[in-house]
């Protein structure tokens, strides 16, 4: 990407990108991880993110969108600062995942793919996250929490509210 173009990537993200594309036999191999790393920083795949990734890799925006829409972790709208992903797949379901999911719905006042009005939390029902032997399991962003019961829900939410307070960021939306 030429220096004159506006970048929305932080210097750190730009450096990570530059290092990543060098490594592969083909530049575009950086596409999938790069979209995720960009989303981690910016919150979602905005038009500007798509445009910048396309330009950096050297492919069209349409091509980037075509790939991005395939992957379930990639999103095109902002989520909460803490995205709560509750696995309800078989191993978790057998150990009460739907009760845990319902408790999250009650506590947060939002349903599947909902975002709380303060932008702090979003909630998602997801497929197996690879923690089946420690079910029911959830991920909050990338953190795993396992062997949950409905009673553990409020404690988990309190932990993240505390984190947000400590960082001084209450709203992200």
């Amino acid at each position: 990407m030429s220096n004159e173009t506006m970048t929305i990537f932080s210097p750190k993200l730009a450096a990570r990108f530059d290092a990543l594309v060098q490594k592969y036999p083909a530049r575009r191999s950086a596409l999938v991880p790069m979209l995720l790393y960009a989303q981690d920083e910016i919150g979602y795949l905005s038009d500007a993110v798509i445009a910048e990734v396309a330009e950096r890799i050297g492919i069209t925006e349409l091509d980037v969108r075509n790939v991005a829409t395939y992957y379930s972790m990639l999103r095109f709208k902002p989520a909460g600062k803490y995205n709560v992903q509750v696995c309800t797949n078989i191993s978790c379901m057998l150990r009460g995942a739907y009760d845990v999911f319902e408790r999250f719905q009650d506590e947060l006042g939002v349903g599947h793919k909902g975002v709380t009005p303060d932008g702090l939390f979003s909630l998602e029902e997801v497929e197996c996250i690879g923690a089946c032997c420690w079910a029911p399991a959830i991920q909050v962003n990338y953190d795993f929490h396992d062997e949950l019961t409905p009673e553990s829900v409020s404690g988990i939410l309190a932990e993240y509210r505390g984190k947000a307070k400590a960082e001084g960021t209450v709203s992200h939306a």
Binding site: N89, I90, S91, E127, C128, G130, A131, C132, W134
Partner: peptide
């Protein structure tokens, strides 16, 4: 990629 429900060994 370990995504088959019931599988968490590679983890």
């Amino acid at each position: 990629d370990e995504s088959e429900p019931g599988t968490c060994k590679d983890h």
